[in-house]
Nucleic acid binder design. Structure first.
Lengths: 163, 163
DNA sequence: TAAAGATGTATGATATATCATTGAAGTTGC
DNA sequence: GCAACTTCAATGATATATCATACATCTTTA
């Protein structure tokens, strides 16, 4: 039974939460995705992070963050200016529009959390948090190296893969 | 603090689990994604579902499932034959290759779960499950209808969106 | 300081996610 | 038996996820 598998329940809960959260943001007439919102928040709080730093904090991939930032620059939520001491980077700032958007989203986000957690006590969350953290750290360590020395990773993507 | 928000922990845990799970499947030399695996399992157990049915069971979108099925037909994990009594549909079957793949994946999946849940008791899971279900059902109900009668959804995607 | 190495960003390729729409094919109501 | 409705699958558009690579730019080291 799928429902007995905890990862299925986890996935289901977080997906539905994201769906509800985005729907309520949309309904409020605010043009931002929840993922973008998270990145914007991080940039607001620390304006001298690399994309890799940001990615780590929001638990996303550097490539994803790069694309999100590029979209947010295009949509005007972010502004960039070159960093004098490092030619590879830009300093990212939340724009005026970005600030207004963050303000507008804030109450929606709080309300979303409240709705999602209705009927759960602080004690419930206190129980759940360390369990989730434990799963996380287990999985962090759990990509065990194979006994075989050399792995043919390329073959995995070949369409002629034997199985 | 992001870490105090339960949804962040949830997201982090499930993401890392998926990452580990896929890495271990890759490492075993098996050419399937965990999402495809889930769909394949459902089709194996019920060979007369519509894509919408399948989507519901794996908690995905019909459009996603349609694309996954199309990929799995291409890669040979699935086979399709037209259904005589309904010209819109095909009967989907797990192919020989699909069966072999499922067999190969099974032990990896079990091992992944074991690794991920190390240090968690059955009691822990029994506590967590209903909480997750509660979050899910809260969120299912939580996309509250707006008081305003008409919503201009199109405007949300416009680049000229005022904020 | 030149070469080697590390870091930061961008991007290609592919898979999934979501919403919306289309068009074909069933079903219902009359 | 036809019109209206519903269902099913496919697909366009856009966003995210992941891996890999490319390229520029720093940093170290010999």
């Amino acid at each position: 039974m799928l429902s007995s598998i905890i990862f299925y329940s986890l996935d289901k809960a977080i997906r539905q939460y994201r769906k509800m959260a985005q729907a309520n943001i949309d309904r409020a007439g605010i043009a931002i995705t929840i993922d973008q919102w998270l990145v914007l928040r991080v940039i607001q709080e620390h304006d001298d992070l690399t994309q890799t730093d940001i990615a780590e904090r929001v638990f996303k991939d550097q490539a994803s963050v790069a694309r999100m930032i590029s979209l947010m620059l295009k949509s005007g939520l972010l502004a960039a200016e070159p960093l004098p001491h490092d030619g590879r980077r830009n300093r990212l700032r939340v724009s005026e529009k970005g600030l207004r958007t963050l303000d507008a989203v804030q109450p929606v986000v709080l309300s979303n959390r409240q709705v999602a957690l209705e009927g759960l006590s602080e004690a419930d969350l206190a129980v759940m948090r360390p369990l989730l953290e434990r799963i996380y750290s287990n999985c962090l360590a759990g990509a065990e190296p194979t006994p075989e020395p050399i792995q043919n990773r390329t073959a995995l993507n070949a369409t002629t893969q034997p199985q």
